[in-house]
């Protein structure tokens, strides 16, 4: 469904990605692992068109590298950023509504589904989003992207800095959207979650993919874990 070939990306003069190759199939849950600063977020942003990609990215056979972010979103890719980027000044409900691509046009995911997934969001529906706790903001930002009804959702470090109870909820959320047939690209540092939910994993180091395989492959491969993942 998504194919990334020889992807390079730059921030100003610094060369961040050095030819990333990866692909995600329909309904597949894929994790992108690696330490901070190896280029995982940049990979996501390049796919989304938020960082100018150099290389070839195709989605359902159509070249999307070079398109505007909103065009890519309309092709069916959703992005949940690591820094959450909730919209201050708007309520929780308004934030969710902005996730819909057209006014009042709910897709498979409806406002009520978001509230069912996270009842906390319904309680906070009319609260200005900027006063929500970190965990609530994470729920909000994930649901906001879901409201746009993506076929492929890229989720960047959803559990970072959250309390264990909420990490558990996020894990359940990932399993639930996976079971709905959506494809997921999960960026994680916590090996435990990634190993549990993914069918396939990529490990990144220094702007390149250094390992590709199944969770059991990675569990068996101690050298990759030591060199590229463990701190």
């Amino acid at each position: 469904m998504l194919e990334v070939k020889g992807l390079h990306a730059f921030y100003g003069k610094s060369h961040i990605l050095h030819g990333v190759d990866m692909n995600i199939g329909k309904g597949e849950i894929v994790s992108l692992l690696g330490r901070n600063g190896v280029g995982r977020t940049t990979t996501c942003k390049s796919i989304m068109g938020l960082v100018e990609p150099v290389g070839n990215i195709t989605y359902n056979g159509e070249k999307i590298s070079g398109m505007e972010p909103h065009q890519i979103a309309h092709r069916g890719i959703g992005y949940v950023p690591e820094d959450r980027l909730i919209f201050p000044g708007l309520t929780t409900r308004q934030n969710l509504e902005l996730g819909m691509k057209k006014s009042g046009q709910e897709g498979r995911w409806k406002l009520d589904d978001a509230y069912k997934l996270f009842p906390r969001l319904e309680e906070r529906a009319e609260t200005p989003a900027e006063v929500l706790s970190g965990g609530e903001q994470q729920m909000l930002t994930m649901c906001r992207t879901l409201m746009g009804d993506p076929e492929l959702i890229m989720i960047d470090e959803p559990t970072e800095g959250l309390a264990p109870q909420i990490v558990k909820q996020v894990g359940e959320f990932l399993e639930q959207i996976a079971s709905s047939g959506m494809s997921v690209l999960l960026i994680e540092q916590k090996l435990s979650i990634a190993l549990k939910v993914s069918q396939r994993l990529y490990v990144m180091g220094h702007g390149e993919i250094v390992f590709e395989g199944t969770p059991s492959d990675l569990e068996a491969n101690e050298s990759v874990r030591k060199e590229w993942l463990e701190v």
């Binding site: 979103a73 000044g89 509504e97 691509k101």
Partner: peptide, 18 residues
């Protein structure tokens, strides 16, 4: 609301399809 959201995070607004 799209304008208000774009005041803080225009990139995110774009990534949501606006």
């Amino acid at each position: 609301q799209v304008v208000q959201a774009s005041l803080s995070h225009p990139d995110m607004v774009g990534a949501l399809g606006h």
